[in-house]
Design a protein around this nucleic acid. Structure first.
Lengths: 196, 196
DNA sequence: ACCTGAACACCGTTCAAGT
DNA sequence: ACCTGAACACCGTTCAAGT
């Protein structure tokens, strides 16, 4: 006579994200999550392999949240559509970072091997190809661009740049877009380059 | 009759870095460090405020190691000297990251407010000014460049990019240099720009 | 001044047991 | 199948005590 299921992996990850948002990543523990779900710590091990798996689950959740509502890249409907799409993903990353400032740091400290992470990578590969980036540079450039965008979002959200005056964030975002766009330029096929 | 001093902050931080290198950041604990120093955990609290202070100390150590042997920027002895200097700092960051892959992640998750961190920042500010970056963009661009360089070094060292084929690291480094150089370009004064 | 010892609430994870 | 309970070694940090 099997018991009714009271928790599942989704509920556990959601609770973990709640704890991280409320009390920081160090407060994320099997005990604290279990308490929040009104369950014994050991009950979690039926749905989560161990704590590392749990943290990776949070990363997966954040990645999925970044990609939510981002349409798959069409066949380059308009010229420079790739740039708009890239900026939209960066904006979403910033939004997610400000909603989950503490948890967001995990994105840079853990390998991004989940399905959601691979989806984000594949998406950006497509965009870079549309931008005319040569095949052997696509993955390399994706790593660089992703690191820069996620790193800046994490840094702003987690107060790593606490020393700099607030209120200039908009300008920071614009500068980042300019930086990334110009940084990609040398990797695009000559046909796309312009020099007035 | 005061006791002879058996440990100091420097020894504690060195031991902490050893533990992180050997067994990962999660293994860095007051107990594990104390055991390594043949001392009671409580003995550490005379030299370190708490665990957060200890982790910040590791960041300080890594920053100092990055800046070791990097000469202060002279008055722009040669044109494009700034680029060589910037690349040298990035190379040193990569070297430190590969020596301390686990601990290096801390650089991106904790505020860089130590004296050593401020020194690195000031150094890069000077280099960017030499490159002709306008005053109101210098700090902004330093944050972007630092995030990109440290983020890539951390990602490579900590296997965050484990999915990509090994052995292409040299090409990755060259691409990163190209990307950063081109990304800075739009922020330089018109006099320095060239367009064949 | 500097370190020890005992103690606290908390942590990840195990094993065996209950329904 | 799913959860509980007791137990383990470990964790950060306190307080009072030793030299």
């Amino acid at each position: 006579m099997p018991r009714p299921k009271t928790i599942d992996r989704t509920a556990i990850l959601a609770a973990a994200l709640d704890v991280a948002d409320a009390d920081g990543v160090p407060a994320v523990s099997m005990h604290s999550i279990a308490k929040r779900l009104a369950v014994t710590p050991m009950a979690l091990y039926r749905h989560v392999a161990n704590k590392a798996d749990l943290l990776d689950g949070i990363v997966e959740l954040l990645m999925a949240e970044i990609m939510a509502d981002v349409p798959a890249p069409g066949p380059a409907a308009e010229r420079d559509a790739w740039l708009d799409a890239l900026i939209r993903i960066a904006d979403r990353a910033r939004a997610v970072a400000s909603r989950h400032p503490a948890a967001f740091t995990l994105l840079l400290s853990r390998p991004a091997a989940s399905a959601a992470a691979r989806e984000v990578r594949a998406h950006i590969h497509d965009l870079l190809r549309q931008a005319g980036v040569g095949g052997d540079h696509v993955e390399r450039l994706e790593r660089i661009v992703t690191t820069t965008v996620l790193g800046m979002a994490a840094g702003q959200a987690s107060q790593r740049f606490a020393h700099h005056p607030p209120g200039v964030l908009d300008e920071d975002v614009r500068a980042l877009a300019t930086f990334v766009t110009a940084g990609i330029e040398p990797f695009r096929t000559p046909a796309e380059k312009a020099c007035p």
